[in-house]
Design a protein around this nucleic acid. Structure first.
Lengths: 172, 172
DNA sequence: TATTGTTATACTCTATAACTATA
DNA sequence: TATAGTTATAGAGTATAACAATA
């Protein structure tokens, strides 16, 4: 097991990353804050799903998810379909308008990162992304990472981020 | 410059890290939330300083810092000394009680990380910590890093926080 | 007039608990 | 009775703007 100092240093950096997240959040359009944006992102990556699944993927309480979903639904970015198999459930589906917003979010996020991280090599970016994914994974709280896990309901989920419109950027 | 997809993947992981931060925040004592805890941490690492310096190091608006400082001062963890050189300024100093709280915070944080990241090697931890520090650094918003308790993995760059005249934390 | 810090206000995010409607 | 989802409420975090005291 690693030294205490090593863990402390990591904890500090995790805390400090909050400033980066705030900086990214500032680039978002006023109509789509980070919370709702995360909902759009997860639907784009994993395809249609129910509320509880979104909650699980974002590691949020369902009450929180419900609010974010209400936001994106009101803007017409997501439609709430009834589930033929379970009357209590709502199936969420991204609309074309939702994909448009997502494309916009992706653009600003990529711009921000490309501008600030111009000095990074592909390998460095991949290493950081991979280690962060593992960190989230080991914490058991972050399920929105690559791999699969979003399927189960036969719907589309073209998953993989196409060059065009890709998932959402930041959040809180 | 890296591909769009690479930046998107990183943006997603930064977002997902929010769940880890929430998990860590949940381990904090009710009397010391994350915001105030960050104030204690920065004072412990960099020594006595004024409000504006804390704001800069944490990349927070001074109004936010003021609230966090008021919290820790009320608990007797920090004292606000007058600055002989500038009557407007307040010099913040960690009290022995503040150091005690800090030790407690460190313990729970290390426990949480050590438990979840038991499978990580020292090298992996250092790599992640170093890349996160660089990320914050390149964003120009995170100044609370560099040189720490004994072992900087890799060489932290410039160490500018001490001299502290970095750009404004937030846009004004 | 400019700067340091405080306070008031507002908004986002999150969680707990109470509630509904199905199952 | 249990589960899916909604809503009400509360607390933490942050930012903007107005303000006080000092430079």
């Amino acid at each position: 097991m690693a030294t205490q100092g090593r863990y402390m240093a990591l904890a500090r950096q995790i805390t400090a990353l909050g400033a980066v997240k705030r900086a990214l959040a500032r680039t978002l359009p006023a109509t789509c804050p980070a919370g709702p944006a995360a909902v759009l992102s997860v639907l784009n990556r994993h395809g249609d799903m129910r509320m509880s699944k979104v909650s699980e993927l974002l590691a949020l309480d369902m009450s929180v998810t419900s609010r974010h979903v209400a936001h994106v639904a009101q803007h017409g970015w997501v439609e709430r379909l009834s589930d033929p198999a379970d009357g209590r459930s709502r199936i969420l589906r991204l609309t074309p308008a939702g994909r448009d917003v997502l494309a916009e979010l992706a653009d600003v996020a990529v711009d921000a990162l490309a501008h600030r991280l111009a000095g990074w090599s592909d390998t460095e970016l991949d290493t950081l992304t991979g280690l962060l994914a593992r960190l989230c994974d080991d914490f058991g709280d972050c399920r929105d990472r690559h791999q699969d896990l979003g399927h189960g309901s036969g719907t589309d989920h073209g998953d993989r981020a196409q060059a065009g419109h890709t998932p959402a950027p930041s959040r809180t």
